[in-house]
Amino acid sequence: MLSGSAPRTSAAAQAPAVRQRRKHHLWVLYFYGSAIGKKAVMAVTGIVLLGFVLMHMVGNLKLYYPDAERHLNAYGEWLRTFGEPALPHTGFLWILRGGLILSFILHIHAAVSLTLMNRQARPIKYQGGRSYAAADYAARTMRWSGFIIGFYVLFHLADLTWGNANPDFIRGEPYNNLYYSFERVPVALVYIVANLLLGLHIYHGAWSLFQSLGLANPRFNQWRRTFAAVFAAAIVIGNVSFPIAVLAGAVDEPEHITGEARLIEHAHTLGTAAETLPGVTFHA
């Protein structure tokens, strides 16, 4: 026997918990199993979602065109018909939606599982409180802003895509839906708050993604923060202006100038008469 007694070593007394990770044979799962992998996925899906909110905001700027209703509705129509006949009707839109849904789910799944991991890493908080030296409000509230935005997105879909949260909803008439949605002050306020939170989320996220993907270089590091701030500001200013414009009366009431043909065609596609669509009101 080489050594003497070794049963009760201090190493055992002080040993912290070790998290055992499953070794996936599938490369992509193994990669996603690591926290850095998950952060990279959050960054990439974040970029997809950033692209979406940017396009979404820019598209909605058509609200300020002189002939806003026609332009906005035509844009909606374009999204549904783009790529035809190579793609089926709304095919392109569903590809976009598929990418968005996947990004959204992965973004949330990664965030939730990393949050759980991080909770385990500090089970006991500082009992005497703590003071932050660098983390700004945006960084510290990512989980809350993300959580609220997630729920807001569901409401937003119910309000403006599915229509069940909007009594004035007309499928295929985004201008109408948007107008009547924002005319309701509480909805407009919720929208504004959600967008401010989205701005906060982007302010940290659009900077953070560079770190997560390993994109750091003294030559452009200072621009990462500028980029995130400008991006967040653009999204917030653009998006928040819409309900304000509607409430301030700067946007014309919908005139359903989308054209009968389009509407009938649309109803036909759905196999329903336009008149029977839920929540449809003709103002004519």
């Binding site: 080489l2 050594s3 003497g4 007694s5 070794a6 009760r8 070593t9 201090s10």
Partner: peptide
Amino acid sequence: RDLVTGEITSHSA
């Protein structure tokens, strides 16, 4: 002496 547990042990070499 293990400074954490106070245990006294021997090691031969």
